[in-house]
Design a protein around this nucleic acid. Structure first.
Lengths: 151, 151
DNA sequence: CCGTTTTCAACATAAATTTATAGGAATGAT
DNA sequence: ATCATTCCTATAAATTTATGTTGAAAACGG
């Protein structure tokens, strides 16, 4: 599979979760809550959030009453920023970022194909913000609730 | 990284290599040659080619004088066919293929984002054939040769 | 101000998967 | 019979995924 790593998947869910609470005020969110809401172990979330913190996408507040908040507004954080922080790059293959990675790059047609695909993904992920992801999620939650109620 | 596995990358190079010889006649290509030309170990190529054979994208001929040939014309094999055979799917995440994979699918906004990205990739990889990949490669090789000669 | 609690931080380790190598058996051409 | 090749199975190495254990910082109650 062309696999988006769990880091990327879980990381986005973590960020969307933080984004949801971001609009509800400024209080910090603890990973325990995210863990319960998203069904991802705290320990793993702790590892995933480190690069997000390094890249200033989240801020941490230590001690009782502490937790995490978004580093910027959800409208200012793009999906590609999150993936970039978590995976180092959005590229499908190393050789797209680093042409010296493989000594065949200059005579490899598949390289160009992967490069094209990578560009598609980058453009797509650059056009979606955390705010968009949050709205998508909220809409789905509302729809699911409505459906449950109707029943 | 959103990673295309080595299976996918090596598999495409293997297929393009077979495609190159396909037009030169019908003789079978041995993995030893592919290994030397592509710089990929025979043992690993042997593993990679199994699903390609199962999916009829290549044919094998056993014994001395044997080897592999393409199962169809290079114009009839698309990049997505090769990836599908090798990786089982072109999806970025499991939950796009199998919505029951994660119980949050129905209320997860990121799911929709990955689904959109997957569709982009699928469309892109459906529009490129082995023939296209071969031509890209041949063009690059010719350009590299010309450059070397000029020097 | 002190001890307790809450939370992030850091390090270590286990489990699973992917990537890669190895040995030899089966097959078929000459 | 011999040799070249695919085929099958095992296993080693590296990476990703996940959990456990302890430590350190900050708030809070007394």
């Amino acid at each position: 599979m062309i696999k988006l790593s769990t880091k990327g998947r879980y990381g986005m869910r973590l960020m969307v979760n933080l984004a949801r609470h971001h609009k509800n005020g400024r209080e910090a969110i603890i990973l325990k809550n995210v863990s319960e809401e998203e069904g991802i172990s705290i320990r793993y979330l702790e590892q995933i959030i480190i690069p997000l913190k390094i890249n200033k996408l989240v801020k941490s507040i230590r001690g009782a009453g502490g937790g995490y908040t978004l580093g910027k507004s959800p409208t200012e954080i793009r999906v590609c920023d999150v993936l970039q922080a978590l995976e180092g790059t959005c590229s499908l293959v190393e050789c797209v970022e680093d042409e010296t990675y493989c000594d065949k790059t200059k005579i490899c047609g598949t390289h160009d194909i992967w490069k094209g695909a990578t560009q598609l993904l980058k453009d797509y992920f650059s056009g979606i913000t955390l705010q968009d992801a949050l709205e998508l999620t909220d809409k789905k939650i509302a729809a699911a609730k409505k459906k449950a109620k109707a029943k």
